[in-house]
Amino acid sequence: MGLLAVLSGCGEKQKLVSGDWRNGIKEIRMAVSGSNDDPRLVKRRSAYQARLSQAIGLPIKLYESSDYNGVIQAMSSGQVDLAQMAGGGYANVDAQIGKLAAPILTLRQAEGETGYYSALVVRADSPIRSLADMKGHSLGYVDFNSTSGYLVPRAKFREQGIDPDTYFSKTSFAGGHTQAVMALANGQFDAAILQASGGDPVHGFSRGALQTMARRKLVDLKDFRIIWTAGPIPSEAFVVRTDRPQPMIDTVRGAMGALPYDEPDLWLEIGQLDGSAYTSVTRDHYKDIIALRAADIAQRRGQGGRP
């Protein structure tokens, strides 16, 4: 690289690349899920596509799927090279192909967290102050398919020796985080399980259904109290096929990791939270979700009973 300074004047930037790992590769295929109706999501896809294409020097082809399962199957079958997926989705891929897929990046939020929490919430005027006090009281879950509003808290209840099917007087599904807050406020449940993020149990939370509704003046935060939390539950990941060239994986990781620092305005335009950034992860970051998924699969096969 000794002639770099001179060569740069000729308009040619110096590459530290030995050989060309691109030989025989015509394009990089990336799976994405979600609705085209969300303009921020569409913009995010386009931004990732353009950045990765520029960084890697190959076209990035998007494989769009209307549901999570489409992305999971595309990754598991090797139809795509990388994908962005939630922890539960990656756990499903892991169950199918193991080490052939690996998470490489997840978001680290401004306050430092790389996940979110399940929070057991009661009304502030409630005499219930702990999970022990909840025995014989009613509880509202979010949804049967909710990780933070059902899957994780039930698993954590069991870890603490509580059978979630018999411990509470009544349980039912609110249908969503917002509905769970309203049902709790209206006295429909003695407590509700909600997602909480933007902080931790020590410092408090700044995001989640309660905070969103409080900002919209629909509820007052002072009317509620968190009495128990479970988490953090790992956020979604960039997942790559490990049988692809290592230089490609390194370049993807670096290009995506540098994005919030290189282009802070674009980072906000595509709907990311200011102050957030990517951090490296491995399978280990998702081991709890993988274990929950395995337990779920076992239950579905009738080995552990239905929750």
Binding site: L16, D250, Y278
Partner: peptide
């Protein structure tokens, strides 16, 4: 690094260093 380094090289260096602790 120098600014005349290519973006791909810079991204590779970043992408190699980011997971090094793991």
């Amino acid at each position: 690094v120098r600014k005349d380094i290519s973006d791909e090289t810079r991204y590779r260096l970043i992408g190699i260093h980011m997971p090094m602790h793991l």
